[in-house]
Deep mutational scan, measured.
Amino acid sequence: VYKEIAITNGCINRMSKEELRAKLSEFKLETRGVKDVLKKRLKNYYKKQK
Rank of each mutant, 00 (worst) to 15 (best):
K43T: 05
R14A: 11
K50P: 09
N13F: 01
R32E: 04
D36W: 11
L24R: 01
E26M: 08
Y45A: 06
K39W: 00
Y46A: 13
K28W: 02
Y2K: 15
V1G: 14
I7E: 10
K39A: 06
E18R: 15
V34H: 15
E26G: 08
E30A: 05
E19M: 09
A22M: 13
R32N: 06
K28G: 15
K48G: 08
K47D: 04
K23Y: 07
E19P: 00
R21V: 09
N9I: 13
V37P: 00
C11S: 14
M15A: 03
V37W: 03
K17E: 05
E19A: 10
N13D: 08
K35R: 05
V34W: 07
K40Y: 03
V1M: 12
G33A: 02
L38D: 06
G10W: 06
K35S: 05
E30Y: 06
E18Q: 15
S16V: 03
G33N: 00
L38Q: 02
K43S: 04
V1I: 14
V34I: 12
E4T: 13
A6E: 12
K17H: 04
T31W: 10
R41S: 04
E4F: 09
K17D: 03
D36T: 13
Y2Q: 15
L24I: 01
K28H: 13
K35L: 03
D36C: 09
K40G: 03
M15G: 00
G10F: 07
E30S: 10
K23I: 09
A22V: 13
I7S: 11
R32C: 05
E26C: 07
Y2D: 15
V1A: 14
L24T: 02
R32L: 03
L24M: 05
M15N: 02
R21W: 02
L29F: 03
G33H: 02
N13Y: 06
K17R: 09
Y2A: 14
T31I: 11
N13W: 01
K3W: 05
N44Y: 08
T8E: 08
K40W: 00
K23V: 09
D36M: 08
E18D: 13
V34Y: 08
L38W: 04
K17I: 07
K48I: 04
K17M: 05
E4N: 13
S25D: 12
K39M: 05
S16D: 07
V34D: 07
E26W: 06
A22G: 11
I12G: 02
N9F: 12
L20P: 01
K39C: 06
L29Y: 02
K50V: 12
L24F: 04
R41A: 01
K47E: 06
E18H: 13
G10M: 11
I5S: 14
Y2F: 13
S16A: 06
S25Y: 11
I7K: 11
K50N: 13
K23M: 09
T31Q: 10
N44R: 14
F27S: 07
E4K: 08
E30G: 05
T31C: 13
Y2H: 14
S16P: 08
K28N: 14
A6L: 12
E4Y: 10
N13H: 04
I12R: 03
K17W: 02
R32Q: 06
K39G: 03
C11T: 14
V34E: 05
K50S: 11
V1T: 11
V1Y: 12
K39Q: 06
E4V: 10
I5E: 13
L42Q: 01
K28A: 11
R32D: 06
K35A: 07
E18W: 11
A22T: 13
V37I: 08
K48M: 09
K48F: 05
K39P: 00
T31M: 08
D36L: 09
L29A: 02
V34R: 15
F27V: 15
G10C: 08
K47V: 06
L20A: 01
Y45R: 01
F27L: 15
K40L: 04
K47M: 07
V34A: 10
L29D: 02
Y46F: 15
Q49I: 12
R41D: 00
N13A: 05
Y45W: 13
R32Y: 05
F27M: 14
N9M: 15
E4C: 10
E18Y: 09
K48R: 12
Y46R: 08
R32P: 00
F27Y: 14
C11K: 13
V37N: 07
N13T: 03
Q49N: 12
E30H: 03
K23C: 10
Y46K: 07
M15P: 00
Y2V: 14
I12E: 02
L42Y: 00
K28M: 09
K40M: 04
V37R: 11
R14D: 07
Q49E: 09
K43I: 06
A6W: 08
V37M: 09
V1L: 13
D36Q: 08
R41K: 01
G10K: 11
I12W: 06
T8H: 08
Q49M: 13
K39Y: 01
L20W: 02
I12D: 00
A22N: 14
R32V: 05
A22K: 15
E30T: 04
K48W: 06
I7H: 10
N13P: 01
T8S: 14
E18M: 14
K43W: 04
Y46V: 15
E26Q: 11
L20G: 01
K23H: 10
R21Y: 03
T8N: 11
F27N: 14
Y46P: 00
K28Y: 06
N44H: 12
E18C: 15
N9Y: 09
S16T: 14
A22F: 11
G10N: 10
F27D: 04
R21T: 05
K43E: 03
L24P: 00
S25K: 14
K48L: 08
L42M: 04
E26T: 09
N13C: 02
E18V: 15
N13Q: 04
V34Q: 08
S25I: 07
Y45Q: 02
L38Y: 00
I7Q: 11
K47N: 10
V1P: 05
N9L: 11
L20Y: 01
V1R: 06
K3A: 12
N13L: 01
Y45L: 04
S25Q: 13
I7M: 14
Y2T: 15
N44P: 03
E30M: 03
T8D: 08
T31D: 06
K3E: 14
K23G: 02
E30C: 10
L24E: 00
S16L: 02
R14W: 01
K48P: 02
L24S: 05
E4L: 07
V37Q: 10
L29I: 07
R21S: 05
F27I: 14
K28C: 11
L24G: 00
L38M: 07
L42N: 01
G10Q: 11
L20E: 02
E26A: 09
L29C: 08
K40C: 03
Y2W: 12
C11Q: 15
N13K: 06
R14M: 07
Y2M: 14
C11L: 13
K28S: 13
S25N: 13
K40N: 07
K47F: 04
G10H: 09
E4G: 12
T31Y: 15
I12M: 05
R41V: 00
L42F: 05
R32H: 07
R14E: 07
R14Q: 12
K43P: 02
G10V: 08
